[in-house]
């Protein structure tokens, strides 16, 4: 574990894991798509439009999870100055922003036929939009500071401050009246969704998780190469010397 924190070791280790993770992700994606779009039955109230759930819900879950990873890695980077934590935080930001944007867009495409509106300013939707701005602010702040390590640390402070939005997003539907409905899967007791719909949802969630891990590894490796470009190991691994 300790050895993995050395940039070169992390680079080589992530190179070995990328391929299996990417394959598993592809398999989950195909399975989940077929299961969700073809096999799963229509919903008793919403018919077929509920199938948007299979991309909307995993995007929304991952938008929160990636932010938690980003803020956590940022905290580790601030306290222990570990390079691998710095690159994990910076590599996560664009991926998390993409998940958040997707959650908002697919939610809008679901809201129009079901609720009758593309967008409302209720607590759930507004706090998720705030999350998108937090990601964008993080990326802008990192761009604005020349020295990459300083930039990552400054952005980590922003990420930590913004982390207060995570519980707000999750509990918004319980604390306030919202148009968005209460959680289905993560509530106490049995999920309020039939097994034939829950299974493809979980497979798609796994696929989105695998997508995040694969992309995180690719982007973290890029960040490491950028930041360590003057270090001899970078030239060596790029030339294929083990």
């Amino acid at each position: 574990m300790q050895q993995l924190l050395a940039p070169k070791n992390f680079y080589l280790w992530s190179g070995r894991w990328l391929r299996p993770v990417a394959w598993a992700t592809g398999l989950c994606t195909l399975t989940g798509l077929y299961w969700g779009l073809v096999v799963a039955p229509p919903d008793y109230q919403q018919g077929d439009s509920y199938r948007i759930m299979f991309v909307h819900v995993p995007s929304a879950w991952m938008s929160l999870f990636v932010y938690a990873v980003m803020a956590g890695a940022g905290a580790v980077a601030l306290v222990w100055r570990i390079k691998v934590a710095e690159v994990v935080a910076s590599a996560s930001a664009p991926i998390g922003a993409a998940f958040t944007a997707l959650a908002l867009m697919t939610g809008s495409l679901w809201g129009k036929p079901m609720w009758g509106t593309w967008w409302v300013w209720d607590a759930r939707l507004t706090s998720e939009l705030l999350l998108l701005f937090l990601y964008l602010g993080y990326m802008a702040l990192e761009q604005a500071i020349e020295d990459r390590r300083t930039a990552t640390r400054a952005a980590a402070v922003l990420a930590l401050v913004g982390a207060v939005d995570l519980p707000i997003i999750h509990y918004s539907v319980e604390w306030w009246h919202t148009l968005h409905q209460a959680p289905t899967v993560t509530r106490f007791g049995a999920p309020a969704i039939h097994g034939s719909m829950l299974a493809p949802l979980l497979v798609m969630a796994l696929a989105f998780f695998g997508y995040y891990v694969s992309l995180l590894l690719v982007r973290a490796r890029c960040e490491l190469l950028e930041r360590e470009r003057t270090n001899p190991w970078v030239g060596e691994v790029c030339r294929g010397i083990p």
Partner: peptide, 25 residues
Amino acid sequence: EVLAKHDENYMPPELAAHLPKVKDT
């Protein structure tokens, strides 16, 4: 303006028909 608010329950139509009454949340 009238917006619909759906509940958090998802199930196949055949199953919903068998329930005595879908719980109004």
